[in-house]
């Protein structure tokens, strides 16, 4: 029975990982897509965290959306899944740290996670707790992929020549 169960779970993991991979790909594509149209606003969103000079924020704000879209596409096709997932996890940790620091300093900003954020609209409260929880969820998706990078419908699988 024990072996049967482990065989079954071995068969299930690639599917679970596939869902995680496609989900994370969607997260990056949406997050990047929403920022890429207005890089000046993206720079202001980074600057609103007040963690670096505006010149540095400009660079980060301009590069970040393109990195996000690239990561999304790489995860979508499933290339070097473990590495792209690890980079995704690292970015999520950085984002979470940024939000925690903004929260701790009492800044009233939009996290700029799924928008080119910045200062909040009038009467809006920052929802740092929710932002962090959501990013932790994404971190978990990345974690699953680092742990079990084998997925269905991936370029990795095709190149490795395995039907697993």
């Amino acid at each position: 029975m024990e072996t049967l169960r482990s065989v079954r779970s071995a068969a299930a993991w690639p599917w679970i990982s596939t869902v995680a991979r496609l989900g994370l790909a969607a997260v990056w594509l949406i997050a990047g897509g929403l920022k890429v149209g207005d890089l000046a606003a993206s720079a202001r969103a980074v600057n609103a965290y007040q963690l670096m000079s505006y010149d540095a924020a400009k660079v980060v704000g301009a590069i970040q959306p393109f990195l996000e879209i690239a990561l999304g596409l790489l995860l979508l096709i499933g290339l070097a899944t473990r590495l792209t997932a690890a980079i995704s996890a690292l970015l999520m940790v950085v984002f979470i740290a940024g939000i925690v620091s903004a929260w701790a300093r009492g800044l009233q900003i939009d996290c700029g996670c799924f928008s080119a954020g910045g200062a909040l609209a009038e009467g809006k409260e920052a929802a740092y707790g929710l932002d962090i929880l959501r990013d932790l969820g994404f971190l978990a998706l990345a974690g699953i992929l680092v742990w079990r990078p084998h997925t269905r419908f991936s370029l990795d699988g095709l190149l490795m020549g395995d039907a697993r």
Partner: peptide, 28 residues
């Protein structure tokens, strides 16, 4: 084969991310 594929796909990923960063830099 797995090792070779892992190495080259990783290189490809790094190159793609680097290019993406460059595109952002140039747009800025």
């Amino acid at each position: 084969r797995r090792r070779t594929v892992t190495i080259w796909t990783s290189v490809a990923v790094v190159v793609v991310l680097f290019i993406a960063g460059l595109v952002g830099w140039n747009m800025m």
